[in-house]
């Protein structure tokens, strides 16, 4: 693997189990800076387990393989250290935390990341200016900033709130786990607008989705199909269209042949 040195993320032969059941079975993935990778695949193929492996959720037990992130062994880093190194997960099911204001969480998170980089902490006023500007991109009411984290939010508000956090924290590698599910077309466009606003040469995305629809708005560089814990096929954005038309069954036949 001669091109590893310029990868942001190298996933090599990763096997992982969830609840004792093997889910990932030798997964390889190379993500270079600035790339947008879409990961599609049927239910149970391991998409969310991949997100958990990368972010360090304890429910995903890695049994073999390695992951290099920015050239370092990812498994050596605690979840918060990965976050401070610029890894961000937009959760499929964002967690409600009563009692903590959205803005408090964001400021604490941003300052933890800044502190890790050796930058000074932002005061409340500077922070609020940034947060409000980002909320505007997503057409979110500023009042959302003072509400408790995801508490009593509608499904769509929660997803939008994840993207708001991503905009504020400006990650190096953003993983979006089915951020499009449960969104109507208008909300989907707004979310895509947020992601596109963040696309940059030094920033990469892994977009996990069931539907090709999202990829009309967030155009990926590479599309992977995950089947039975492995990348079954990779291609350009047209692969997503093909999948939409044919479903996943033909791939599994092809893989087994």
């Amino acid at each position: 693997m001669s091109n590893d040195t310029n990868s942001l993320l190298s996933v090599r032969g990763v096997h992982a189990a969830a609840g004792g059941k093997p889910i990932l079975k030798g997964l390889d993935l190379e993500v270079k800076p600035g790339e947008v990778h879409a990961i599609m695949g049927p239910n149970g193929s391991g998409k969310s387990t991949l997100a958990r492996v990368l972010t360090g959720h304890e429910s995903a037990e890695v049994t073999a393989g390695e992951v290099l992130y920015k050239g370092q062994d990812l498994f050596e880093l605690a979840p918060e250290e990965r976050a401070r190194e610029g890894m961000f997960l937009a959760f499929q099911y964002p967690v409600e935390i009563p009692g903590i204001a959205n803005s408090t969480l964001l400021r604490e998170g941003l300052n933890a990341i800044r502190d890790h980089r050796g930058e000074s902490e932002l005061d409340a006023i500077d922070f609020l200016q940034i947060a409000r500007a980002k909320a505007d991109i997503l057409e979110m009411d500023h009042a959302m900033l003072s509400r408790a984290v995801n508490y009593g939010f509608s499904g769509g508000e929660k997803k939008r709130n994840e993207v708001l956090q991503m905009l504020v924290l400006e990650p190096t590698l953003a993983i979006l786990d089915e951020t499009d599910s449960g969104l109507d077309i208008d909300a989907l466009k707004i979310v895509a607008k947020g992601v596109n606003a963040l696309r940059a040469e030094n920033r990469s995305f892994i977009v996990i989705t069931h539907y090709q629809r999202l990829l009309d708005y967030i155009v990926p560089d590479v599309v992977h199909v995950l089947a039975d814990g492995r990348i079954a096929k990779s291609g350009d954005k047209d692969l997503a269209l093909e999948l939409e038309a044919k479903g996943y069954a033909w791939l599994e036949e092809g893989a087994n042949a």
Binding site: E80, F91, G99, L105, E108
Partner: peptide, 19 residues
């Protein structure tokens, strides 16, 4: 969730408890 936003576990607990 809070770890994933960069907070270590103790800060996360403090934030929840203070809230």
């Amino acid at each position: 969730y809070l770890n994933q936003r960069g907070l270590d576990t103790e800060d996360a607990v403090n934030l929840i408890v203070n809230g």
